[in-house]
Design a protein around this nucleic acid. Structure first.
Lengths: 137, 137
DNA sequence: ATTAAATGCTACAAGATTGTGGCATAAAAT
DNA sequence: ATTTTATGCCACAATCTTGTAGCATTTAAT
């Protein structure tokens, strides 16, 4: 089970911000806390802005704030915004034509797991985590 | 849920061979059927040989045959042989220190799914698929 | 107005993964 | 013995992902 670093970063950033969803977060602050390089983080922030999760405030005293309620931001949407969800939905053996009607040999064994993955990614939102339990970041 | 192409290929190749586990498969044959490039496939075959799953027979009339019973070849072992299993076991947010004792915010939500993945990969063997159902390859 | 501190964008660099070329080696067929 | 058809290996090429540099733009503070 491996997301790309890009998706990892996006989830890290937004779940970090979600601990205090009303605050304004300058890139500098996120970079320090999450140890992601400045330039790459800001590139991701642009994607996340365009997707409508956050809004950027330019200029001095600027930064990023949530643009919608964190309970409306699903994990799959985040991944989709930064790299696309398609790649996580394909056949485990990489056959383009694999489907319920025309399954690869592993289809039947693999499907329940992929369903579970999709359930998590589609149903969980940024509001669904217990941030108080955590001493990380 | 995404394995690398390398792992996909390895699973494709071995599950293809497992339909008729006694046969000898020249690389040419596998390449034609599975549409993997000749050189890359042979590189993978070398890894799979070194791991002891198959044995190569050189020279004319050569090819590859299983070196152990397919019921003894677990999916996780295959992945491990060609690219290592570690990367599939890490924290979903990419935190090296993430553990049950020191979890990231998503740990609790993510763990059941990763467990399920590990169950499939660790417990399923090449003998556990219903090859008769399949019209692919 | 000027400066300081922030984001936005484009193009390039580095690294990892995947794919290829060329040749050496092995063994059966002739 | 020679030829044909296999695998083995090494180094390089192409592509994809991740990271960086530089500069433009925006806005608050002074």
């Amino acid at each position: 089970m491996k997301l790309t670093k890009t998706s990892e970063y996006a989830l890290r950033i937004l779940s970090f911000m979600a601990r205090k969803p009303e605050e304004l977060y300058p890139a500098r602050h996120l970079v320090e806390q999450l140890k992601i390089s400045d330039k790459y983080l800001r590139r991701l922030m642009t994607d996340l802005s365009k997707a409508g999760f956050i809004r950027s405030i330019k200029g001095r005293e600027g930064g990023y704030v949530f643009a919608k309620n964190i309970s409306e931001i699903h994990l799959s949407q985040i991944i989709d915004a930064v790299e696309g969800m398609e790649k996580y939905m394909g056949c485990v053996l990489g056959f383009g034509e694999c489907s319920d009607d025309n399954p690869c040999v592993m289809h039947e064994s693999w499907l329940p797991m992929r369903e579970k993955l999709m359930n998590v990614l589609n149903n969980k939102t940024l509001a669904d985590f217990n941030y108080n339990k955590i001493n990380k970041y």
